[in-house]
Design a protein around this nucleic acid. Structure first.
Length: 829
RNA sequence: GCGAGGGUGGCGGAAUUGGCAGACGCACUAGACUUAGGAUCUAGCGGUAUAACCGUGGGGGUUCAAGUCCCCCCUCUCGCACCA
């Protein structure tokens, strides 16, 4: 054994060995455990976020193996996407070649980190053997009506030259490049995720145990369920009605006008012949232009225009002017809102702006009567109905149900539920993605590619010049085909699928990465799925995680799988930041993992990223902290080096604490306390930072023993052996290379990666004497060491007898003495 | 505006049930070893007027006892944002 810790040679040796011996392949027996981290986009270089994410995952994977589980821990590549295409445009490299090269580079880097993947299951989503199955899913979904094509206004990113799904637009900007998006009318393919809205929402309850509440809340809000009613308002003098959606049908009697979205289909129709045609057209036009420039809709003043038409309140018969209003969204509900200015702030502002009538229909109990004339804001609280005919006096909560039922009875409305969630637009006008398996025939129309003709492969020979439009549309050999139904000349769909489709099912494919008879091998998937523990960044709280939950349900309904929730437990780790900001090239605060590995080795990089903070918090990068982690590993190395002669050939202590001489009982106790702390920190809380500090304490304690001492005392040698083995075993999942090496040096038995974790001896945790704190009026004045479980009266006597205590009690009256066994005495004087 | 989560030494962070606030690490200080030290080891390290007092964003409360529970306020981060 070398005297100094030299990570590079060690790490290289063990990494090679793990690879050659396929140490981390599954099938060694034990209960299955599927641990997965979100797979990376192969940008070419791993970054600190990856190091952290995968270090956390690797600890869990290795820990579970040492717990006797059969662990599936795969890695692959989210390999389709725009950076490859942009690189092609900028540097003339083919996206396929660029991607392959990056994958090779990143795979090597991940190996250098010593992560325990089963590399035989590696997959890349740009591989036709992967995306061909996705095309199969597309066709089956089409058959089931879960895929459809429609022309609608979609989010267009000019920089990325493609359409984006709603989930991929943040504050009106592209999630990828940050450019503002614009509305564009395009014909697009959609996945009917809304068909699963209710189930996706209900499923959230199932996830409460294993998912962070934050993520569940975000998903729930995104789905955005509202329970209310749809109500029909007849248009005066025409055979037309306007249907609104409202959650406040209890305020129906107070509806005094109607607001429609500026792009409501009836807008022009309602204005016709009223003299308002021009005003309406001008307003609609203005709104359309404003859409792009003014994103801060919430700040915008209420604005609208009278259409010239009226509708009738179906319960009061009141004539209600119909307005177009800038705050009504066409995409939500029915795009029409009954306006109740007394009880809705937006309607109130609008009414004041255009001098529209306000009727109070809910009166807060026990308060002064609300007066429309003096109202300064809408009253949105609870109360009792007034001015509401037969419902007067009814509490408004109760009225919600009663009025909904009444509307149904009268045939003028019904209970209704609306979701905020929209269908998932999956068409992308880019090259580097999975082709959508559809053919357009002039005679037969939209024709799915027959399954036997799959995959529809991406043509290699493509001209990527960044000129816009779908690049595939310019590849004649790809576009030109024949109709599978009638044989006539036909064209292929030239859009590709959103890359989030690939990541919606890759975790299932790992169970059977080489299977070629279908997308999923039933037996393998039944065995391994769902994922027991999924680890990744919070940025996918909605996007990837929602799509995956949807896709899982689709595949279940297509008969491929039996489960509904893909990820039983989810850990969202925080960002890696430096100098108070997220690491980024533009800020110049990027730390390169490669440089770190070269300087300190992978174990140091792993250890620091686990030690600096608990996983769910942001991690502040600190170069000196890294140095500290390296120093600890060096200290550990030197400790084992120094004790080695006394440890070789010695069996770890295996007896009871009762037989340990008093002088060494503390060592035994510390060893087992450490096991206990590490186990609960890792198993229950996943707080590796405190687990590591517990081991550091044990190592600090071990420093006070010398090799010579141990050579003279068999029991001490056995205890030290036990302690050193414990340190190595507990740290093995965190810093595997150095631990493997030390394990080999001390002649540890068996393969470390599968060595059982040490068990706690409960007797060794118990101290014979305990420190009892003595407080006078809540302030610590004395510390007493007494026998454990000493009778409370005895403890009290001892406390009161202490000279230091007497100094405070002399001449005072004892009011009360509280004794907490084995902990504290509080004397109140 | 709504929702969620934070605020503890110079710094990252501990404190699992209300029971010694500051574990562990970094930085810092002193000493040892040394030709040398940005290596290593030992010791110290919340503040201050140091037998004492103060101290977990601020103020109040409950309690023998509060970082932890309750009320009010300030502040930061994240998410949603005219969703009818």
């Amino acid at each position: 054994m070398e005297a100094e810790y030299n990570p590079h040679a060690i790490e290289k040796r063990w990494q090679q060995r793990w690879l050659e011996e396929k140490t981390f392949a599954t099938g060694r027996g034990g209960e299955k455990y599927y641990l997965l981290e979100m797979f990376p986009y192969p940008s070419g270089k791993i970054h600190m976020g990856h190091v952290r994410n995968y270090s956390i995952g690797d600890v869990v994977a290795r820990y579970q193996r040492m717990q006797g589980r059969d662990v599936l821990h795969p890695m692959g590549w989210d390999a389709f996407g725009m950076p490859a295409e942009n690189a092609a445009i900028a540097h003339g490299v083919h996206p396929a070649a660029w991607t392959r090269r990056n994958i090779d580079e990143m795979r090597a880097q991940l190996r250098r980190m010593g992560f325990s993947y089963d590399w035989d299951r590696e997959l890349a989503t740009c591989d036709p053997d992967y995306y061909r199955w996705e095309q199969v899913f597309f066709l089956k979904m089409l058959e089931k009506g879960l895929v459809y094509k429609k022309k609608s206004q979609v989010n267009w990113c000019e920089t990325c030259q493609t359409v984006l799904a709603n989930e991929q637009v943040e504050n009106g900007c592209c999630w990828r490049c940050g450019e503002e998006t614009e509305g564009k009318d395009l014909e697009q393919w959609f996945f009917r995720i809304t068909a699963y809205a209710e189930e996706l929402l209900a499923g959230c309850d199932e996830l409460k145990e294993g998912w962070p509440e934050r993520v569940i809340t975000m998903q729930k809000n995104w789905i955005g369920k509202s329970v209310g009613a749809e109500i029909d308002f007849p248009v005066e003098g025409r055979e037309l009605k306007i249907t609104v959606f409202t959650t406040r049908q209890d305020t129906l009697y107070g509806a005094t006008f109607m607001s429609l979205a500026p792009d409501h289909p009836l807008a022009a129709e309602l204005a016709r012949g009223t003299g308002q045609e021009e005003a309406v057209a001008a307003f609609v036009d203005k709104m359309r232009r404003q859409e792009r420039s003014d994103r801060d809709l919430a700040q915008l003043e209420k604005e609208g225009v009278f259409t010239g038409s009226y509708c009738l309140n179906p319960v009061t018969g009141r004539k209600m002017p119909i307005y177009l209003a800038n705050f009504v969204l066409s995409g939500y509900g029915t795009g029409a809102v009954m306006a109740v200015p007394a009880h809705d702030q937006r309607d109130f502002e609008f009414a004041r702006m255009y001098d529209l009538p306000i009727i109070v229909v809910i009166q807060p109990e026990g308060e002064e009567r609300l007066d429309p004339a003096t109202l300064t804001e809408a009253y949105t609280g609870e109360g009792v109905l007034v001015n509401s005919d037969r419902f007067d006096g009814c509490p408004n909560r109760k009225a919600l149900d009663l009025i909904a039922a009444y509307l149904e009875e009268q045939g003028i409305g019904k209970k209704a539920i609306t979701y905020r969630l929209r269908d998932w637009g999956v068409s992308r006008q880019r090259y580097w993605g999975a082709p959508i398996p559809i053919i357009y025939c002039d005679k037969c129309g939209v024709v799915p590619v027959p399954e036997k003709d799959l995959p529809v492969t991406l043509p290699e020979d493509v001209d990527l010049d960044g000129s816009g439009g779908s690049p595939l549309a310019r590849v004649e050999s790809f576009v030109k085909t024949t109709c599978p139904q009638c044989g006539a000349a036909a064209r292929r769909e030239t859009d590709t699928m959103d890359t989030f489709v690939e990541s919606s099912w890759y975790y299932m494919r790992y169970a059977c990465a080489d299977y070629d008879q279908g997308p999923l091998e039933r037996e393998a998937v039944d065995k391994w799925l769902p994922v027991d523990h999924y680890i990744g960044g919070i940025e996918h709280a909605i996007l990837h995680l929602l799509y995956s939950r949807f896709f899982t349900r689709v595949l279940r309904d297509l008969g491929y799988i039996k489960f509904s929730e893909p990820f039983t437990r989810l850990l969202t780790q925080g960002m890696v930041i430096k100098d108070g900001a997220k690491m980024s090239k533009s800020k110049g605060n990027v730390v390169d993992p490669n440089a770190l590995i070269e300087k300190y080795g992978a174990d140091t990089a792993r250890m620091f990223s686990l030690f600096a903070s608990p996983p769910e918090l942001d991690l502040e990068w600190n170069d000196q902290g890294v140095e500290g982690s390296f120093r600890f590993l060096s200290r550990l190395w030197r400790l084992v080096y120094a004790l080695l002669p006394a440890l070789n050939g010695v069996e770890a202590y295996n007896g009871s604490i009762a037989e340990v001489p008093a002088a060494y009982a503390g060592l035994r106790r510390k060893t087992h306390q450490t096991i206990s702390r590490v186990r609960s920190d890792v198993e229950e809380r996943m707080h590796f930072n405190t687990a590591i500090s517990a081991v550091m304490e044990l190592v600090n304690e071990l420093k006070s023993y010398s090799c010579d001492q141990a050579r003279e005392d068999e029991i001490l040698a056995a205890l030290l052996r036990e302690a050193v083995e414990t340190v190595i075993l507990l740290l093995a999942p965190i810093v595997p290379h150095i631990c493997e090496e030390l394990w080999a040096e001390i002649g540890g038995s068996g393969e470390l990666a599968y060595a059982p974790l040490p068990e706690v001896d409960p007797d060794s945790l118990i101290e014979d004497t305990v420190l009892v704190v003595v407080q006078i009026n809540g302030k610590v004045r004395e510390r007493l060491t007494v026998a454990r479980d000493l009778d409370s009266e005895e403890v009290k006597k001892l406390a009161l007898a202490s000279s230091r205590v007497q100094k405070y009690t002399d001449g005072k009256t004892l009011r009360k003495v509280i004794v907490i066994p084995n902990k504290l005495v509080n004397i109140v004087v």
